[in-house]
Amino acid sequence: MMVRLQDKVALVTGGGAGIGRATVELFAREGAKVVIAEWNEDAGRAALDAVHAAGGEALFVPTDVSDEDAMKALVDKTLQAYGKIDILHNNAGGSTTNDGPIHTVSNDEFWLKMHVDVFGTWLGCRLVIPHMMEAGGGSIINMTSVNAIIGVKNRNAYAVAKGAVSSLTRALAVQYGQYGIKVNAIAPGRTLSERVLARQGNRGPEDLKDDSHLLGVIEPEEIARSVLYLATDDSSKTTGHTLVVDSGLTIQ
């Protein structure tokens, strides 16, 4: 069986759950050595165990992506273990139930989104790109959201953060294309991560159908397959692009 990431080294932030874990497991099945960055140690070790149980190779590094020293240590440990970073998936982040309209949401919630979603992505790119430049290329996949494309109620802080990630993606694609570095983003629609399921009372996909998602709500594995596309040479001439995987939400 042909694997598409043979001999590649992939760093995935927020790799312990949801889209991140699905991506970690898919990358490992495709032959990559995967570094799992995750602040929740139980989730990170569970993802590591799952990769090892399936015969893959992975490393878990407990990481707070909003902490510059922790991110420097993450990159250093990755390079010590594997010598390079071919793929960076800045996945850590997400919305919370504390978000809301701008006139009621707390400044703390706003800064949480800025620190994790925006600064965490900024740090990942800032610290990894020099090594990709030296190696002659690489692929960066950031995580934005349909909330950066259409207006959505009660997600004002999240929308600002994900809009910033989208803008950063385009800017970096222009800045670093000359070094063979692709920089793209994924904008998911409603995805059944553990966080979303818990917020919905752990109801399953059949219970969460709605008219806005034409093909049904999205499983984390379906987003992971899109991340894989952007990580491989199948997308060799795709950069600065936000791939919308939203089951038709934004076309209506």
Rank of each mutant, 00 (worst) to 15 (best):
D207V: 04
D211Q: 13
L228H: 13
L243M: 03
S235F: 02
V244P: 12
V217E: 07
L228V: 15
D211R: 15
S212H: 08
A231E: 02
L228M: 15
E221C: 12
D207H: 06
Y229I: 03
L243H: 01
L230H: 00
T242N: 06
E222P: 14
E222C: 10
V227I: 09
S226E: 07
E222K: 12
A224M: 06
A231C: 10
T242E: 14
I223E: 04
S235K: 03
S212Q: 11
R225N: 06
L243Y: 01
I218L: 04
L243P: 09
L243K: 01
D207P: 11
E219S: 09
T239V: 09
A231I: 05
S226D: 08
H241I: 03
K209N: 14
S212A: 14
L228I: 15
I223N: 06
L214K: 13
G216A: 03
H213P: 15
V227L: 01
T239L: 06
A224G: 09
D234M: 08
S212C: 10
L208N: 07
P220N: 01
L208C: 08
R225C: 03
E221M: 07
V217W: 02
S212W: 09
A231L: 04
E222Y: 05
D207L: 05
T239K: 05
L208E: 04
S235E: 04
V217A: 10
V217R: 05
T238I: 06
D211T: 14
I218C: 01
D233M: 01
L214C: 10
D210C: 10
H241G: 05
S236T: 13
P220V: 00
D207N: 06
H213V: 12
